[in-house]
Design a protein around this nucleic acid. Sequence first.
RNA 1: GGCCGGAUAGCAAAUCGGUUAUGCAGUGGAUUGCAAAUCCAUCUAGACCAGUUCGAUUCUGGUUCCGGCCUCCA
Length: 462
Amino acid sequence: MLKIYNTLSKQKEIFHPIDPDRIGMYVCGMTVYDYCHMGHARVLVMFDVITRHLRRNFPAVTYVRNITDIDDKIIARAIENKEDIYSLTNRFIDAMHEDERALGILPPDIEPRATDAMDQMFYMIKSLVEKGIAYQAKNGDVYYSVRKFPNYGKLSGKNLDDLEAGARVDVDSDKEDPLDFVLWKMAKPSEPSWKSPWGDGRPGWHIECSAMSTHHLGNHFDIHGGGMDLSFPHHENEIAQSEGANGCAFVNTWMHVGFVNINDEKMSKSLNNFFTIRGVLESYDGETLRYFIMSSHYRSPLNFSDNNLNNAKDSLTRLYTAIRGLHASEAALEEVSQRFDFETKFNEALDDDFNTPIALSVLFELVKLINSTRDKDIDQANALAQLLVKLGGYIGLLQMDADAFLKQGVSLSDDEIDEKIKQRHEAKINKDFATSDQIRDELTELGIVLEDSANGTSWRRK
RNA sequence: GGCCGGAUAGCAAAUCGGUUAUGCAGUGGAUUGCAAAUCCAUCUAGACCAGUUCGAUUCUGGUUCCGGCCUCCA
């Protein structure tokens, strides 16, 4: 029984799909004018985990994650680069996909681009204008009239009068109310623009997501997610737009992923304390990043630091060490799956609002059993290792060959290392431990750790 | 100012009204020529002050500190 924390009700709820045969989930994706940073990585990874879990529990899941490929920052950056906006956005979309692959993220089912959704936006804006919820101001911009939507603030727990009191001054506005937000914006002469019933211009950010989500998932769908910073005003405005235009409930469950922090402060562009995914990948492999992200609950803050990343790496190393060299048949896997309740516990953890830290701890319980079984019953250890790989796969972990994971990023070639191991072995046979230890120390220096066992010596990266 | 979160051992991070979280690190032991890996045992908790309770880290109230949103933000 899946429980999800719903930002709308501020509590965990049992998830009741609108149509159990067809779950719809929409997640706000990137605005593509720069490389993705670790904050984006967290949203990407967590909704990947969520999608994987939903797919194992429901026959069909449609995961839509949009791309915002038109907005002020994109225009500004394109001008700065003397570049066409499409060449800019295409470049960063490719980079994003590359980052995603490194993190083991499966592509969403549909990845709509705002610039392909103009008609859907026109349709929605038109409907809002016709209903008197939106208006075209003197400057030509079309605004949403926030006071016309009685439930405004239901997601963020804010009310209009409080917002009004704390509102920053908005001088140059033709808005009827300072809290009204833009649906369609008139283009300045040199800017990219689209023809619309209200004049040449471009869409506001909020309407993009309302239009794309309902277009692909219907007016009323199950889950809508994004980073916590989107809950206000972005998601609040989406609710106002979609429910205002369609006259029905928009989304049942709202999910928000917590921030990635640096020294307990939010990682953000404006604070200039962000790390790009590709930057971090220079020092850590993608699976380590993925593990790091899953090591805390998705709604808690996640502190980004070398110490925590190294912790993640060490933990993953323990996991991979346990499955190294072990393989089993489907039948054996089936047998241990039945006999032990790891899978049940693992699934229960994910069912409880996607509690990945608990799910990971189940993996470590399994590791302990594998390691202690190894000497007594190798067949069972093999089968349990297979089970570990299977459970890891549920959350996109442990799908690499263990040797490949444990040997990656080393400066010497396999042959060179094997040669050193051979030399050391000979020294050991001659009881020349000074030499053998020296060889081992040299390798340790290079980040290569040797492990002796009854079957000979193997190695891994530190 | 308004509205939200959070405070757990050396670090990270969950659960839970009474019983081992888990990973890394530490200590003792097994194993090893010595290590590494592994196993066994073990030490470090619940910001502070009240209250409810047979019993609270867990519930309630207050205090302190930290963070977020209210402007583009994942």
